[in-house]
């Protein structure tokens, strides 16, 4: 029964988030609203960590599987992908590597500097 209760809480927050996503005229997805709502609820003590943790952690753990349908959906875009194949691959590979590198390096740099100051 504990799991059912946990899922009920998570689904309740999901429902509110979906409503906000539709009602607020901003391109912010339901997941982002929900993340903020749940974090605020946890900090405020309105939701106890123990009352969502088991199912919540399982959901996060299973996340890679949830991207399979979207990935398979790429077959619907074969025409577009083929048409722009070279620039698409080039931009995607270069920009992803560079963004990952720059973000990580920036964080490393600032964190190391702060450590030294301390």
């Amino acid at each position: 029964m504990k799991i059912a209760k946990e899922i009920a809480i998570i689904m309740g927050i999901t429902l509110i988030s979906e409503y906000l996503n539709k009602a607020v005229p901003l391109p912010i997805p339901a997941g982002v609203y929900g993340m903020v709502i749940l974090l605020v609820c946890l900090v405020a003590g309105a939701v106890k960590l123990e009352s969502i943790e088991t199912s919540g952690n399982k959901l996060v753990e299973l996340m890679p599987i949830m991207f399979i349908p979207a990935g398979v959906g790429l077959i619907n875009y074969v025409a577009e992908i083929r048409q722009y194949l070279v620039p698409l691959v080039a931009v995607t590979v270069v920009s992803t590597v560079v963004v990952m590198g720059v973000t990580g390096r920036t964080a490393e740099f600032i964190l190391k500097k702060r450590k030294r100051e301390k």
């Binding site: 988030s17 959901l59 349908p69």
Partner: peptide, 23 residues
């Protein structure tokens, strides 16, 4: 996708639960 979309439904609640490690 008729069956696979059931998996996709869990994406939003899973994203929301990323608040747990964050907390």
């Amino acid at each position: 996708n008729q069956g696979a979309q059931i998996i996709s439904y869990f994406l939003t609640p899973a994203t929301i639960c990323l608040a747990i490690p964050l907390y």
